[in-house]
Design a binder for these strands. Structure first.
Length: 261
DNA sequence: ATGGTAGTCTTACTA
């Protein structure tokens, strides 16, 4: 079962790029971030015609997450538990049943800039809520794939120019510690696990500004976190870097994992 | 110190 994550930065602007990537990569399930539309504005019928079941958790103008899945989705829940007053659409979970049931948690973690400030406080509070939810997911002892745009650069080797990020919410020590605290519950960072001693990249995001793509000034912020039961059945994973060179690209590229499920 | 680019349904805000 091939499970992917793609921050598309606006479904209206990215419908062609997403459709082309789906045809090329043929994922069984993909979680999307930054759909930037309300549920009613999502082109559900278009993706249904391509053979995908569609679940959306949208919001007007900003944020918004979704799941496209060839296999039926069960027990879909929208929103990260822990704050009923949080109106930002950044989290969706579902169970997908192939040869066995897999719980998928798709997330768009707050950016947090500028730091310090209220946006950074929201990021850290959101990560604490995610830590609690992640612990609950591990308790199920199901294969769980928790994936999406984490807006976290875990280590200096995950940035082409780490020095440019030292005051950024994506790389501040407190951000990285919060991410590490979740990972240390028992999650495997799939991409890093395939190249544990790698010294640079692979990157998943290149800013639209300042020629970042041309200069390969990227960062790795889209992550595939596997529960122990999911890590045990890991076959392969990857980053579809070539998508960034396509027509009207997102600033992120897809990341994917293939598991025996 | 600043700017650089892209998306949304704003004429600002987010990233």
């Amino acid at each position: 079962m091939k499970i992917a994550s793609f921050n598309i930065n606006g479904i209206k602007a990215r419908i062609n790029a997403l459709t082309e990537w789906l045809a090329a990569a043929n994922p069984d399930l993909v979680v999307l971030q930054e759909i930037k539309t309300i549920d009613e504005g999502f082109p559900t019928d278009h993706f249904a015609d391509l053979g995908y079941n569609v679940e959306t958790h949208g919001q007007k103008g900003f944020n918004g997450v979704a799941i496209l899945s060839k296999l039926p989705l069960e027990d879909v829940t929208c929103g990260l538990p822990g704050d009923d007053a949080d109106e930002q659409a950044r989290y969706i979970e579902a169970t997908v049943v192939g040869e066995r049931a897999v719980r998928v948690a798709g997330l768009y973690l707050p950016n947090g800039n500028p730091a310090p400030g209220p946006k950074y406080d929201y990021k850290l509070a959101w990560m604490e809520r995610l830590r609690l939810r992640a612990a609950e997911l591990l308790k199920t002892e199901m294969p769980v794939v928790m994936l999406g745009d984490f807006n976290i650069i875990p280590e200096p080797r995950d940035a082409a120019e780490p020095g440019e990020w030292v005051k950024d919410a994506l790389f501040l020590p407190e951000s990285r510690a919060a991410f590490r605290r979740i990972a240390a519950q028992g999650w495997t960072d799939a991409i890093r696990s395939r190249d544990p001693f790698g010294t640079r990249g692979p990157f998943t995001f290149w800013d639209f500004q300042a020629g970042a793509w041309r200069r390969d000034n990227g960062i790795r912020i889209d992550h595939l976190m596997l529960s122990p039961q999911a890590a045990d059945i890991l076959i392969e994973c990857g980053v579809d870097k070539e998508v960034r060179a396509g027509e009207k690209p997102s600033d992120h590229v897809p990341v994917w994992v293939d598991i025996a499920a």
